[in-house]
Design a protein around this nucleic acid. Structure first.
Lengths: 218, 218
DNA sequence: CGATGTGAACCCTTTCACAGCG
DNA sequence: CGCTGTGAAAGGGTTCACATCG
């Protein structure tokens, strides 16, 4: 009802991207409206929570009909801030950095990879996803020149804090890190971490539950 | 107090791996005990929740002293099921697959990469992290032969469901997917998803909050 | 005396179920 | 009549604060 002004809850936020993805798929199939039931199934959630999430955007579904795919996709996209011009620099041109540079999902939604940096002499100058790998020393200059406003850290744990500091020093305030360490950043810097090893460990726990246990009497 | 029998809450689980990492670091520095305050800081959480999490393991800290690092690390490790012999097959030998194959974090905690598969003729036979890339056709045979009990899907979205089905067909019941799609699996199959694009989008939202907004009166 | 372990309060999410609207 | 939008209820998770114990 009321248009968005307040921050969305984290839980809602993490589902929004799934809705967006499902909506794009629907759009490609040529549909124009969709019910919460169907969209929820496509996004892998239940319909009640989908409706509640959408209601936070100050929504506008049509009772008895559903949501207009086009309108909904644009609203979500705008809410997430994907309308802005996100210029991303990747730190680390190892396999992970290369994978991310070429990852289609990163190119969608306004994110464009503008530069790739590394410290290793022997790969500086290589071409990665159409970009020339630069020395980290050029970080500040490149940030200004290219207007970078987001950094992805794809470097080993021990190097991460040091490079993170340089990223911050260069004036970038938004960081996505793949390094398995806690990074310390000043107030005002937004940081998120993807922890791939964590996921494997959680999977191991669920997988082993009941199997590696002390004998389940029953 | 009571030794573990029940499943740990998801939230607790996702912090455990952080504690484990911090404990390893402490161990290397040669400490033998640690307080909840210090460990919590190292893991990036507050001490109250750390104590509550550990109490779920049926714990054994010493009041006035803290926890024994060695004992705690082993308890967590055993609880997560890292004592088991996890034999991982990676599907997809592109940049992401290669990055994962070489990722140190995946080699820790009992996970060992045993095989890498791909469908592309031109890379079958390549060497990745010391392993020869096999055709996906060998999946079932290799699973039996090598005792694979975990699969990592590092393939493009459109191929993921198909390959997921083959993984399940080969008898692997634990899957970590990096593909940005909802995968459908039979009852009894454990699956987790890492969504890298999602993280960027959430970061964009937080970054843009207050900036891309309709003008904040005040 | 210092740090754990935990009841109780609080807050955030999810689910239920249905009134209300197109 | 069907589907949205939402109060109200239920369920988890986190924080507080302190009794308890080594």
């Amino acid at each position: 009802m009321i248009p968005v002004q307040k921050a969305l809850p984290e839980a809602t936020l993490s589902r929004m991207t799934g809705y967006l993805r499902a909506l794009e798929a629907m759009r490609e199939v040529g549909r124009s409206t969709i019910s919460s039931e169907v969209l929820a199934a496509a996004a892998g959630v239940n319909s009640a929570i989908l409706r509640k999430d959408l209601s936070l955007l100050g929504t506008f579904g049509t009772r008895g009909v559903g949501y207009r795919i086009e309108v909904l996709a644009e609203t979500i996209s705008a809410t997430l801030g994907l309308e802005r011009d996100w210029r991303v620099g990747i730190l680390g041109a190892g396999n992970l950095g290369r994978a991310l540079a070429g990852y289609a999902g990163f190119r969608e939604g306004g994110f464009s990879i503008q530069a790739v940096f590394d410290v290793a002499e022997n790969i500086i100058g290589d071409t990665v996803a159409g970009l020339t790998v630069r020395p980290v020393g050029e970080l500040a200059a490149a940030t200004a020149e290219l207007g970078l406003n987001m950094a992805v850290l794809a470097v080993p744990g021990p190097a991460a804090q040091r490079l993170c500091d340089r990223v911050v020093g260069a004036g970038i305030t938004n960081i996505l890190s793949f390094a398995p360490v806690i990074l310390h950043v000043p107030e005002g810097i937004h940081i998120r971490r993807v922890d791939m090893a964590r996921e494997l460990q959680i999977l191991a726990y669920h997988a082993g539950f009941g199997a590696g246990r002390p004998a389940d009497p029953a």
